[in-house]
Structure formats: structure tokens, C-alpha cells
Write a protein that binds this DNA or RNA. Structure first.
Length: 838
RNA sequence: GGGCGCUUAGCUCAGUUGGUUAGAGCACCGGCCUUACAAGCCGGGGGUCGGGGGUUCGAGUCCCUCAGCGCCCACCA
């Protein structure tokens, strides 16, 4: 094929041109005839749709894309779907504000409902199905914008495989998996104390917690020991005094052993409480004696459970003091009833100070307090009925799965192990929210109108997905909803992780496409960020272990974060926010990808526009070097032999590079593959191209020219393919000048294709470039042009290197414009240069 | 409290099993219109490889220790 090389190659417009072409040609389309062993399947992270994509997405998704492109060129059929995570709280909050609505799950579906154009002043109550429809509609627009950005970035996703986490397939999959677990006893419901967010009014799982350092104070309260003497404790939660159910000290604590088994009396309320022993009580903390309340913190829950203490709850789900424990009616408790927690604490301290039961002044401290990671107020612990998936009983199997998984980088496995080792409760999957996957369950309503939670009615698997708030369980009729003798739908939804833990099953069609599933599951790789190892990665392993008794994928590729130390400075000085689309427009997608791909696996990387400039320069260099090679040698005879030592040496180095890049990619180290390829390429341009230029123009006769031409085209072909995973647009552009088809479907280069076999003196290029460098240096120091003539150059070198240099002497002379080249044996490289006059 | 990672030139980072005077890019300085590229090319200066100790013929690389930064985990009265 005769190359068609533009006069002025440019990067402008390549994204649009090739994006459209790849779509038309189905370049990245998954071939459903491939069998599992021919497939490379990627469990792409579905980005949260509420909000916008930021440079962190560009960063990590590029990493995955380079891997996908590598395996595609290696001949694998790449299954690379995209998902949108539109399920969950962020979308709910947006819809509430955007439309001025709120979800009331007790309302029936209104098929005629249309959203108000402007948010109503008073929030309109709508049914859950109507609310969900609004959520879905609002996310579609964002999803379009996300797809456009990712296409512009050049992700080689198969956009026909897109799913959403609230979509029908995700719901079907989530519900089917839940029913599986239910049948096998791996899912269960329990009425138990759980961490509760009083603002979101929902239970929260261990994985969603974070500790925040908060100011607090130790308050010393004076209880009465069994003899009526003082017995002091320190507490940060004096407002929970009315919920005190015991006092506890360490079993070995000699100060308190005489009281174990006896009864103390609380201040203010004068309630009797047992004095008990438990090893979790720390003799060095406070007075060594603690009060146990239901519930002030998770230690209270442990004590309550293990010491079989009664429940005396006072905090309601709205975060106020609501329930009055028996025996406290009419007393000082009335002073705090109805108050929020902070106000209740203030009032309690006043009351205790008045009664003389507060000893000294509160001692301010800073201590870690548990928060929901998206929440603003400390979590409380309330008792409620929730659904759980068992994890504690399977800790050892799950640890073993973690060891079976191949981690990139390997040390990331430690995060998984420490998380699993630290699990202290089963996985709480129910949420008292609306925009999520409903539980496919109903409960019988007893004749007295109460709900019989112990006998849930499961949906028919063939009918999934169901919405129990509108669908009717098998054997019932619509009019029996919420009626005595009828049924009631489960009001909760699954936590978003309960759905996203099934992304492999959703993407591969486990619930509804057995053919696809057989070709793609278990998947090959899960790319994701390190902070969600404990949530997304862990929960995905749990689901696959239970559902399929295997890992969901063989490899986990963990990406770091984008650090932005200069963010302030940038926004101050320039006043414009750096958005991904702006960067892509300014530097070009290939350049931004270059920056992203230079971030090593798992390593946090600084946001660096300088690297994008370098990437742009590299892309332009690819255009220009390719232009030179193809316009000189594009019509080279493919059967010509590479006979010149310099050419052979260059190809030998390229063969080494191919081997190194290949094994780096196989180990998920795209960054190393890029770095090595780039280094080679610059040397190829700066040294080899300069050395070979004259010969390629025919200065040394047709055979020497043919060798150069052949070497140039072989090298260009391999280099373009090595760069293709990183710079998909510019490599495709150049490829199209002289090759049929897409470079992204071309075979990954192999060292063998470069005609290896004959022994090659690899020193030739090395020595020739070194001498050329000396000549350049001399001209630079003489303030001469590189074109300046050298009358005579005397090169001293070791005999071995001199022999190598001799093989490239003609090229060196020509590149350096050296009239007379003298070679002498010496200890190390030394070059004496006499420039011509003038 | 336990664990992991990082600390190499002004900046961003490479340095794979320990081996010749420690590398790249950016920035800086100087030079050059050289027929692929002036949004380019050529050259140059610049580092006691966080501190200390050890193993070794030899340590940026291995061991110990200390410090700083970041992250993960932890029952937080």
C-alpha cells in the first residue's frame, strides 16, 4: 500500500474523527462467538452518576483501558462494558431538590404522575415507583455526558454492553442473588442494635463507617455502691444515664471485685443496676468502672449481648430522646424527653450538677467518634429489624479468596486481609431508603393487623424484578395489601453495595443471559481504587464465593489517587476550574492519557499538566517521525533484507523493548511499558533517524538504502503498536496512512517479526550515537550549526567498541558531516574534532 | 495501639534479582532555521539517593533504627 502522508500532520480533530470511525466499524465490539478462554473480561467500575467526572476518573479509567487494549492486540476478545452507578442516596437527594418531591413508600403508584416543572414550595409526596422513575430520568442526562467524555478520552469500551445499577437487569440480579442467599441461609433478618444515621434515617453498615476526631468531655458521675458509698464513673455520654443498664469493670480489677454480682444505684434517677465484670473494661480508663447504656457505643453492644443485659433505649430514630424507660415517668427524665442529643446532654449536666452527682467539672478530650461516611452527625445505635448477609462465619474462606486473588500491586492485599480480620458484624444490606433495589419479599399480615416478619413470602424467581410496594405476592390479590389476613411488602431497599457487589454478574448476564455468562464469567480483572477495597472489592468476593464458589475475577488492578497540591494556586491564579473535558481539549486525549498512564499501579500521582504537555509533544513527535519514515521508506520492499549492522542493532534493541513491554503489561504494569517505549522512541528519533537519514536518501547505494528503509518500516510498525494502548488516536491516525484496518486490532508486536536470528553487534548503535553526541557537543560549544562541516574527527575507543563503530562509520560521518574520520585504540571514548573554517 | 506505602536534581518521577563516574522530563542557562518536526533541534549546569548504624570487595538497591508525610485497620466508656 502506498502511504498517504499529510503535508502537515496534526493532532487536531483526531478524537472526533477516530471516535466516530471506531463506533461505525465496531472496533471494540465484543464478539459473542468467542469462548471463555479467548475472552478478556473487565469488571469496569460503574462511576456514580450524580455529580460529574473528574480527573481521577480520567486517570484510573485510562489505566484499565491500556490493559484492555493490550489484551485485544494480543488476540483476546475483550469484554469491556461500562456501568453507571445511579442507584442510591446521592441520586435521591438530587431528585428531592430538583423536583421538590419526597418519597412516601406507603402511597400507591400513580401512572399519571408528571413531575412539576419547578420544584414545589412544599415537597410533594409520591410513591416509590414514581420517585424511582424521576431518579432514573434525571440520571439519563448525566450518563450521556459521561459516555461522551469517556468516548472522547478514547476508552475502548463496548458501549453496547452498558448497564445501570438501578436498571432492570441489576434489579433482577440483585433480587435473584438475595433469594439464593436466603434459601441457603446466608441471608437472614434480625432485630438488633445497629448503627443508625439520624439524618438519613437509615441503618449503616460497618464498611460505611469512618472515625472522626471530635471534641468531647469526660463527665465524672457519682453512683452509689451497694453499701451506699460513692462509686464514680467517667462518661462522655451523660445524657444516656437514663439508659444505663449496668456498671462494668475488669474481672481482675481488685478495686471492684467485691462488688461484682451486686447492685449499684444510678444518680438522679435512683435506678438499680447490676455491677458486672467483663474483660473489655479497661482498668486504666477513667475510674476503671464504666456505665453500660443501651446504647452509647459499640462496646455497649458487646457488653449488652455478652452479659445478657436488658434493653432500656431512650434515643429514637430521629436522634431525639423519645422513649421513657419504665419507672422514670414523671421524674427528672421529663426534663430531657423530646430533646435532641446535644441539648439533652447540656440539660443532664445541669441536673447532675444541681443534684451534686457531677464530680468536678467535665474534662475536655478529643476522641474518635463513628460517623456514616456521608453523614454530618455522629451515628447512634438503635434497635431495628434489618437484613444481613453472613460474613463472620466464613471469615477463613474469605481470607483464602483474598490470597487466591492476584493483586496489583501485591501489597494491596494487606488492606483486604486487615479488613476481613477486623470484621465484627455480618454485612447489613437493608436500608430504610427508596432509590435502590427493593427486597423481593412480602410478609403475612396477621388477623390482628400485625406483621409476621418471621415468615417472609419470597418472589417467584421467574418474575424478577419485583417491587413489593406495587406487585402482589404469589397466592394473594391486590386488595389484600396491608389488610388483616393479607400481606405487606418489605419497605426497605438494598444498600448500594449489595447491588454493586454483583457487577460481574450484572455485566455478564448471570440472571438472564446464560450464553453470555458462560463466555465471560469469572471475569479477568477488577480495576478499582484502593479506598474501596473494604467495600466494593470485598463484597464482590463475598457474593461470587457464595453464588459460584469462585473468585469473581483472577486479578485486581488497584489504582492510586490523583493528588492535587496546587489546586488552590491554580484556581486563584487562573480563575478557571480544571475539568477533564477542558484538559482533553487543551492537550488532546492522547496527551492526557499519557499523564494518566505514567502513574504507576496503586501509586497516588500528582496532577501535573507538565506531563500532559510532554504527552502532547510525544504525540506530535509520533506524527512527524512517522511522516519522515513513511515519506522516505513507505514503499520499501517488504522482502528486502536488513543487512546493515546499524539497522540490525536498532532492531535488536527494539526486540528487547518488545519483550520488556510485553511482560510489563502481562503484570499489569502499563506505566513501565510506556516509559520503556518512550525512552526507546526518543533515542530512535534523536540518534538512529539522524544516523540513517542520509543512507535512507540513497547516499550509500541501493542495497544500504533498502536495509535502512526496511528497518525503518519494521520499527515504525512495532513502535506504533507499542504506543497504541496509550496514544490510541495518534497511532491510529498514522496507521491509517499506510495500513489497512485499525491498529487497535493489529497483533501486538513480537520480537520475532523483526528478523532476529543472526548474531548482531548491539554496540553499533550505542557507539555511533555516542560519537555523534561528541560531535554535536563540539559544534554546540563552538556555537556552530549542526550542519557545520567537520574537517577531521579522531575517535579513541576500546578495540571492541572501535570495531562496532567501524561498522557504522559511513553513517556517523554523514550524520556528523565529518570529512575525515580517524579511529584509534584507547582506554575510553575520546573524540577530537577539527571544525572546518568559517 | 497495630499495619502498609512513600522520602532520589528547584518540580514531577525512573532506577526489576546489590556491580562501572546515579538517570529522564519539566524548569533554568547557552547555542542552532539541520530538506520529519522552531508548539522544533543540539548542548550545559544542578543530587553527600530523609538521618544514623550495620552486612558486603562493593549499598539508592539488603538488614536494624530514628524522623517526616500519606493511607489502611482497631472495642472510641
Amino acid at each position: 500500500m502506498t502511504p498517504t502522508v499529510p503535508d502537515k500532520p496534526s493532532l487536531e480533530g483526531l478524537e472526533a474523527k477516530w471516535g466516530a470511525r471506531w463506533e461505525t466499524d465496531g472496533t471494540y465490539r465484543f464478539d459473542r462467538t468467542a469462548t471463555r478462554d479467548q475472552v478478556f473480561a473487565v469488571d469496569t467500575p460503574p462511576p456514580t452518576v450524580s455529580g460529574s467526572l473528574h480527573v481521577g476518573h480520567v486517570f484510573s479509567y485510562t489505566h484499565t483501558d491500556t490493559i484492555a487494549r493490550f489484551w485485544r492486540m494480543r488476540g483476546r476478545d475483550v469484554f469491556y462494558p461500562m456501568g453507571w452507578d445511579d442507584n442510591g442516596l446521592p441520586t435521591e437527594r438530587r431528585v428531592q431538590n430538583y423536583f421538590g418531591v419526597r418519597c412516601d413508600p406507603s402511597l400507591p403508584y400513580d401512572p399519571d404522575f408528571t413531575a412539576p416543572r419547578e420544584p414545589a414550595k412544599r415537597a410533594i409526596s409520591i410513591s416509590r415507583p414514581n420517585f424511582v422513575a424521576l431518579c432514573t430520568g434525571l440520571t439519563i442526562e448525566d450518563e450521556k455526558a459521561f459516555e461522551e467524555l469517556f468516548r472522547h478520552l478514547g476508552l475502548s469500551v463496548d458501549w453496547t454492553q452498558t448497564y445501570t445499577t438501578i436498571g432492570e437487569r441489576a434489579q433482577r440480579t440483585s433480587q435473584k442473588a438475595f433469594l439464593h442467599h436466603l434459601r441457603e441461609g446466608l441471608a437472614y433478618q434480625a432485630e438488633a442494635p445497629t448503627l443508625w444515621d439520624v439524618d438519613f434515617q437509615t441503618a449503616v453498615a460497618q464498611a460505611e463507617l469512618e472515625d472522626r476526631e471530635r471534641p468531647g468531655a469526660y463527665h465524672r458521675l457519682r453512683f452509689r455502691d451497694p453499701d451506699g458509698g460513692p462509686l464514680d464513673i467517667d462518661t462522655t455520654r451523660p445524657e444516656l444515664l437514663a439508659a444505663c443498664v449496668a456498671m462494668v469493670a475488669h474481672p481482675d480489677d481488685v478495686r471492684f471485685q467485691k462488688w461484682f454480682g451486686q447492685t449499684a444505684t444510678t444518680p438522679l434517677f435512683n435506678q438499680p443496676v447490676p455491677i458486672v465484670a467483663h474483660p473489655l473494661a479497661d482498668p486504666d480508663k477513667g475510674t476503671g468502672m464504666a456505665m453500660v447504656c443501651t446504647f452509647g457505643d459499640v462496646t455497649d453492644v458487646v457488653w449488652w449481648r455478652e452479659l445478657h443485659l436488658p434493653v432500656r433505649a431512650i434515643i429514637g430514630r430521629d436522634g431525639r430522646i423519645t422513649s421513657t424507660p419504665p419507672g422514670l415517668e414523671g421524674g427528672p427524665f421529663e426534663e430531657i424527653r423530646g430533646l435532641k442529643i446535644n441539648a439533652a446532654q447540656t440539660r443532664m449536666v445541669e441536673l447532675l450538677r444541681e443534684s451534686g452527682d457531677l464530680i468536678g467539672e467535665p474534662q475536655p478530650i478529643t476522641h474518635p467518634v463513628k460517623f456514616y461516611e456521608r453523614g454530618d452527625r455522629p451515628l447512634e445505635i438503635v434497635t431495628s429489624r434489618q437484613w444481613f448477609i453472613r460474613t463472620l462465619d466464613h471469615r477463613h474462606e474469605l481470607l483464602e479468596r483474598g490470597r487466591e486473588l492476584r493483586w496489583h500491586p501485591p501489597y494491596m492485599q494487606g488492606r483486604y486481609q486487615s479488613w476481613v480480620n477486623g470484621l465484627n458484624s455480618d454485612w447489613l444490606i437493608s436500608r430504610q431508603r427508596f432509590f435502590g433495589v427493593p427486597f423481593p419479599l412480602w410478609y403475612p399480615v396477621r388477623p390482628d393487623g400485625t406483621i409476621d416478619h418471621q415468615h417472609p413470602i419470597a418472589a417467584d424467581e421467574a418474575r424478577l424484578p419485583v417491587d413489593p410496594s406495587t406487585d402482589v405476592p404469589p397466592g394473594y390479590t391486590t386488595d389484600q395489601r396491608d389488610q388483616p389476613g393479607g400481606f405487606a411488602g418489605d419497605p426497605d431497599v438494598m444498600d448500594t453495595w449489595a447491588t454493586s457487589s454483583l457487577t460481574p454478574q450484572i455485566a455478564t448476564g448471570w440472571a438472564d443471559d446464560p450464553d453470555l455468562f458462560a463466555r465471560t464469567f469469572p471475569m479477568d480483572v477488577r480495576p478499582q481504587a484502593h479506598e474501596i477495597i473494604r467495600t466494593w472489592l470485598f463484597s464482590t468476593v463475598v457474593r461470587a464465593h457464595y453464588l459460584h464458589n469462585c473468585l469473581p475475577w483472577a486479578d485486581a488492578a488497584i489504582s492510586g489517587w490523583v493528588l492535587d497540591p496546587d489546586r488552590k494556586k491554580m484556581s486563584k491564579s487562573k480563575g478557571n476550574v480544571v475539568t477533564p473535558i477542558g484538559l482533553l481539549g487543551q492537550y488532546g486525549s492522547d496527551a492526557v492519557r499519557y499523564w494518566a498512564a505514567s502513574g504507576r499501579p496503586g501509586v497516588d500521582t500528582t496532577f501535573d499538566e507538565g506531563q500532559m504537555k510532554v504527552g502532547r509533544r510525544l504525540s506530535i513527535k509520533v506524527l512527524n517521525a512517522s511522516k519522515f519514515v513513511l515519506s522516505r521508506a513507505g514503499e520499501a520492499d517488504p522482502s528486502a533484507a536488513v543487512t546493515v549492522a546499524l539497522d540490525q542493532a536498532m532492531l535488536a534493541g527494539l526486540a528487547d523493548l518488545i519483550d520488556e513491554a510485553t511482560s510489563a503489561f502481562e503484570g499489569y504494569d502499563y506505566a513501565r511499558a510506556l516509559e520503556r517505549t518512550e525512552t526507546f522512541f526518543w533515542r530512535f528519533c534523536d540518534d538512529y533517524l539522524e544516523l540513517v537519514k542520509g543512507r535512507a536518501y540513497g547516499s550509500q547505494g541501493p542495497e544500504a538504502q533498502a536495509s535502512a528503509d526496511r528497518a525503518l518500516t519494521l520499527a515504525l510498525s512495532a513502535i506504533l503498536r507499542l504506543f497504541a494502548p496509550f496514544l490510541p488516536f495518534v497511532t491510529e491516525e498514522v496507521w491509517s496512512w499506510w495500513q489497512e484496518g485499525s491498529v487497535h486490532r493489529a497483533p501486538w508486536p513480537a520480537a520475532a517479526e523483526l528478523g532476529a536470528g543472526t548474531p548482531v553487534d548491539r554496540l553499533v548503535l550505542d557507539v555511533a550515537a555516542a560519537v555523534l553526541g561528541e560531535v554535536r557537543k563540539a559544534k554546540s560549544e563552538a556555537h556552530q550549526s549542526m550542519r557545520a562541516e567537520v574537517r577531521r574527527a579522531v575517535v579513541s575507543e576500546t578495540p571492541e567498541r572501535l570495531a562496532a563503530l567501524r561498522l557504522a562509520a559511513a553513517d556517523v560521518q554523514e550524520a556528523g558531516r565529518i570529512a575525515e574520520l580517524v579511529l584509534e585504540e584507547g582506554a575510553a571514548l575520546a573524540v577530537k574534532i577539527e571544525l572546518a573554517e568559517g
